[in-house]
Structures are given as structure tokens and as C-alpha cells.
Design a protein around this nucleic acid. Structure first.
Lengths: 115, 115
DNA sequence: CAGTATCCAGTTGGATACTG
DNA sequence: CAGTATCCAACTGGATACTG
């Protein structure tokens, strides 16, 4: 990411350098907001997430979780049991998204009329 | 987002619990953050936007502007002149995104470390 | 239980030429 | 100047079957 000199100053010329886009890339996967929202309430297992968000294909959940993990937002903990148990929770970095998530949610409630 | 497809009506476990996606749909097009960011500073003409964000194809700029307009974020004003002059500016609703945009930008600066 | 593998469809983004 | 038209590539997301 290109270094930004002054806060709130227009100093990028491509989407790749845009810090806003960078954040959206982290939280903007189709199912990432619901996943993060749910994990803000507490850790969940893979199957629980799948059950709570029924429209989401297994493969998609799997990849979104991998991406969130790669971005340092969530932490995957596998318990050496049979049958296996895997728990996902927010990292400290992920917790810092709480403010962001809440503001996005709030803006929607205030300004998006339908739904 | 200016949605013309019904497929975006996704049955989250509870749509009201997850309005985050709705906001991201509005601001999350690839070039929308830079466009909104620029317009937060003041109105710009089509060609100015195109010049300032050189990597963006004309067709893409055109569609992103249409979508932002359809979502009530920006206002398009065409002056009846030859050659034509068209100016884009944020609506009042668009101005309310300032806080959101700044927070997203701020989070990126604080938590996305990679170069 | 917690995922992969496979294969497929829809949407988005892109380069370039053209028009009112 | 301010866009469209055309055609195309890439990516994301999806349904289902299968595995450790």
C-alpha cells in the first residue's frame, strides 16, 4: 500500500492505493459482514456459522473464513478431537472492526429506506 | 448498489441484523470510494474524474456514477451547452457518508500494514 | 464435524472504437 | 465534452458429491 502523507488528503490515483478500498476489501466479501457480525457476539464453530447463514454454500464459507484468517481478522482454533471441532473467533485486530461495522450498520439503518 | 437483479435479495438469517452489506453495496464498487472521496472535496466534471483516476475505463466510470446517482449519493447536473458540461456533486445523503468514509480510511491506515 | 473437489453461472471490470 | 457499444477476461459465488 502506498504511503499516505497527510490524513484525509487526496493523494492516490488508483483504486489499488485507496485506503477505503483496502478496508472494504477486508470486510467486503459477500458473506463477511454477517460472519464478522456474528463473531462480534462470540466464537462460533464452522457448522454453527453454516446453520445460522443457510444460504451460504460450504465452499464459500470456507473461503471467506480463510480470507478473514489471512487478513488477521479471525483466529481458527482446531481441537484435536473426534469428531473434529473447530472454533472461529475474532482476533484483537478483528475486534477493532467493531466500530467500523457498527457505523456501517448505523448508516444503513438511517439512509437505506427499503428492506 | 443500484441493483437490477433480484439475486441480490439474499436471505440472511436476519436481514435487519446485517445491514452492513447494504452500506458496502452502496460504496463498495471498485472505483466508488475514490469517486466519493474526491467529490467530498467538491463537485467535479466527468472528464475531471476520468483524468484524476487514470486507471479507470470510461465505461466503468460511467456506470459507477449512474449507480451512485441511482442510490441517491450523487447528483448529476448537465448544463445545456455545446460542448456539453456535466457536473457531479454529492447529495445531502452523500455528504452523510463523510464519517463512514473517514472511518474506513482511518481503519486502513491503522491496521493494514503491508506495503 | 469440518471441510474439499468439481464444475458451472452470473457479475464486474477492462480496452477500444464510436457518437450526439 | 460526455458519454455508448461491443466484445472479452477475471473473479466471485453456487450446488452437489465426496473425504479425513
Amino acid at each position: 500500500m502506498a504511503v499516505t502523507k497527510e490524513k484525509n488528503e487526496i493523494n492516490y490515483h488508483s483504486a489499488e492505493e485507496c485506503p477505503i478500498t483496502a478496508t472494504i476489501d477486508v470486510i467486503g466479501g459477500k458473506w463477511k459482514p454477517p460472519i464478522i457480525w456474528l463473531l462480534l457476539k462470540g466464537p462460533l464453530r464452522f457448522g454453527e456459522l453454516h446453520k445460522i447463514i443457510p444460504g451460504m454454500a460450504l465452499k464459500v464459507l470456507s473461503r471467506q473464513l480463510k480470507e478473514l484468517e489471512a487478513d488477521g481478522i479471525i483466529i481458527r482454533k482446531a481441537y484435536p478431537e473426534v469428531p473434529p471441532r473447530v472454533e472461529y473467533r475474532l482476533s484483537e485486530k478483528g475486534e477493532t472492526l467493531r466500530e467500523v461495522i457498527f457505523l456501517l450498520s448505523d448508516w444503513s439503518r438511517k439512509h437505506i429506506i427499503n428492506a
